[in-house]
Simulated scan of single mutants.
Amino acid sequence: MVKENLLIVENRIEEACKRRGRDRSEVTLIAVSKTKPADMIREAYQSGIRDFGENKVQEICDKYEQLPDDIRWHMIGHLQRNKVKQVIDKAVLIHSVDSVRLAEQIEEEAAKKGICVDILLEVNVADEESKFGFRLEETEQAIRDISVFPHISIKGLMTIAPFVENSEQNRPVFKELNQFYVDMQRKNIDNVNMNMLSMGMTGDYEIAIEEGATLVRVGTGIFGTRYKIGENEV
C-alpha cells in the first residue's frame, strides 16, 4: 500500500511542478510518519524516501534508534522548550520554531553540544487562534532577533494552512507566505539562508507546490490512515 501510494503522490508532485514550470528537484517530499510503526516506515524507505516528519520528540528518539541512520528526521510538531535537548542532534530540521523563547532554548542547548541547528520559523498566516506560530507582521522582527544566535541557522519558513473542504481555498495563504519569503530573501539578513518553504499537506500539497513550496509534508496520502493535528490532516 505504501509503495503504491507513494507512486500516486510522486506523480502529483511532478504534475504540480510542471504546471508551474518548476523542476521536480526543487521539492522535497517529507513522509509524515507520526504514530506509524517502524515496518511502515521501512516500506517507504525501501521505496526511496529518506525524509520523514514526526510531531513528537519521543517518536523521533525511539525511531532514530530503530531505523537506518541515513534517514533525515524532521521535527514538524509543536516543540516544548523542555524537550529541545533531546531532539536537536537528531532532527536535520526543526520546522516549528514558533517563538523567540524557543529559539533561545535551542541556542542554549546547541551551544552545550557544540552544534548548529537548522530551523524554520512557523508562521500562522491565517491568524488562527488554534494554531501556533508567528503572525506574519511579527515574523521579520523574529527573524532578525533569532538571526544573531550563533548556533542557529534560519533556513526558511513553515506554515500549517487552515482545514478546508476545497484546497483552492488555501491558495491565498500559500501565495502570501511565498511573497513574504521572497521579500526576506531579498533583504539578505546576516545568518539567514532563506531557501526552504515548508507548506502543504495531504489535502493541499499540490496547491502549495504551485505557490512555491520547497518542502511538502504528506502523511495520510502515503500511509493511508487518517490522523489529525487539531483540525488538520497531514
Results as ranks from 00 to 15, higher is better:
Val2Cys: 07
Val2Pro: 06
Val2Asp: 03
Lys3Asn: 05
Lys3Met: 07
Lys3Gly: 11
Lys3Gln: 12
Glu4Ile: 11
Asn5Arg: 04
Leu6Glu: 13
Ile8Gln: 14
Val9Trp: 13
Glu10Leu: 09
Asn11Val: 01
Asn11Ser: 04
Arg12Leu: 04
Ile13Val: 11
Glu14Asp: 08
Glu15Cys: 02
Ala16Phe: 12
Ala16Cys: 05
Gly21Met: 13
Gly21Arg: 11
Gly21Ala: 11
Arg22Gly: 10
Asp23Thr: 14
Arg24Cys: 02
Arg24Thr: 01
Ser25Lys: 06
Glu26Lys: 07
Glu26Thr: 10
Glu26Pro: 06
Thr28Phe: 12
Thr28Val: 14
Lys34Asn: 01
Lys34Ala: 09
Ala38Phe: 02
Asp39Glu: 06
Ile41Leu: 12
Ile41Asn: 02
Ala44Thr: 14
Gly48Val: 05
Gly48His: 13
Asp51Met: 07
Phe52Tyr: 08
Asn55Val: 07
Lys56Tyr: 15
Val57Met: 10
Val57Asn: 12
Gln58Lys: 07
Gln58Met: 02
Glu59Thr: 14
Ile60Phe: 09
Cys61Gly: 07
Glu65Val: 03
Glu65Met: 13
Leu67Gly: 08
Asp70Pro: 14
Asp70Arg: 05
Ile71Cys: 09
Arg72Leu: 07
Met75Pro: 01
Met75Ser: 01
Ile76Val: 04
Ile76Gln: 05
Leu79Arg: 13
Leu79Lys: 05
Arg81Asp: 01
Asn82Gln: 15
Asn82Thr: 12
Lys83Pro: 01
Lys83Trp: 13
Lys83Ser: 06
Lys83Phe: 02
Val84Phe: 00
Val87Asp: 03
Ile88His: 04
Ile88Cys: 07
Asp89Thr: 04
Asp89Arg: 05
Ala91Lys: 08
Ala91Asn: 04
Ala91Met: 02
Val92His: 02
Val92Arg: 00
Ser96Phe: 09
Val97Lys: 01
Val97His: 06
Ser99His: 00
Ser99Asp: 00
Val100Tyr: 08
Arg101Leu: 12
Arg101Ile: 14
Glu104Cys: 13
Gln105Trp: 05
Gln105Glu: 08
Ile106Pro: 07
Ile106Thr: 13
Glu109Cys: 03
Ala110Gln: 04
Ala111Gly: 03
Lys113Asp: 03
Ile115Pro: 10
Ile115Glu: 09
Cys116His: 08
Val117Tyr: 02
Asp118Gln: 09
Leu120Lys: 10
Leu121Pro: 15
Leu121Cys: 15
Leu121Val: 13
Glu122Ser: 11
Val123Lys: 14
Glu128Cys: 03
Glu129Asn: 10
Phe132Tyr: 15
Phe132Pro: 01
Gly133Pro: 07
Gly133Lys: 03
Leu136Tyr: 11
Leu136Pro: 13
Glu138Leu: 14
Thr139Trp: 09
Glu140Cys: 11
Gln141Leu: 11
Ile143Gln: 10
